[in-house]
Simulated assay, not measured.
Amino acid sequence: MSGSGEPGERAARAIALRVFAAVSTKWGLRVLEEIAGGRTRFRELHRAIDGISFRMLTLTLRELEHNGVLTRYDHHTANPRVDYALTEAGTQLLATVHGLCGWSRTHLDSLLTAPAHRPE
Rank of each mutant, 00 (worst) to 15 (best):
1 M>V: 11
1 M>H: 14
2 S>R: 08
2 S>A: 15
3 G>M: 08
3 G>W: 05
7 P>V: 06
7 P>A: 11
8 G>D: 10
9 E>W: 08
10 R>Q: 15
14 A>W: 01
14 A>M: 03
14 A>V: 02
16 A>L: 15
17 L>Y: 13
18 R>Y: 01
18 R>P: 00
20 F>P: 00
23 V>T: 07
24 S>W: 02
26 K>A: 04
26 K>T: 09
27 W>E: 03
27 W>C: 02
31 V>D: 01
32 L>F: 05
34 E>Y: 05
35 I>G: 08
36 A>D: 13
36 A>Y: 12
38 G>P: 09
40 T>K: 02
41 R>Y: 05
41 R>K: 14
42 F>Y: 13
43 R>C: 05
43 R>L: 14
44 E>L: 05
45 L>H: 01
46 H>A: 02
47 R>F: 07
48 A>H: 03
50 D>S: 02
53 S>K: 02
55 R>Q: 07
56 M>W: 03
60 T>H: 01
61 L>S: 03
62 R>G: 12
63 E>A: 11
64 L>I: 04
64 L>E: 03
65 E>C: 09
65 E>W: 06
66 H>L: 08
69 V>M: 10
69 V>D: 03
72 R>W: 01
73 Y>N: 12
73 Y>A: 10
74 D>M: 03
76 H>A: 12
78 A>K: 10
78 A>C: 04
81 R>T: 15
81 R>G: 08
83 D>C: 13
84 Y>N: 07
86 L>W: 07
88 E>L: 14
96 T>M: 06
97 V>L: 15
98 H>I: 08
98 H>L: 07
98 H>P: 00
99 G>Y: 02
99 G>S: 12
103 W>Q: 09
107 H>S: 07
110 S>A: 13
111 L>K: 07
111 L>R: 09
112 L>V: 07
117 H>Y: 15
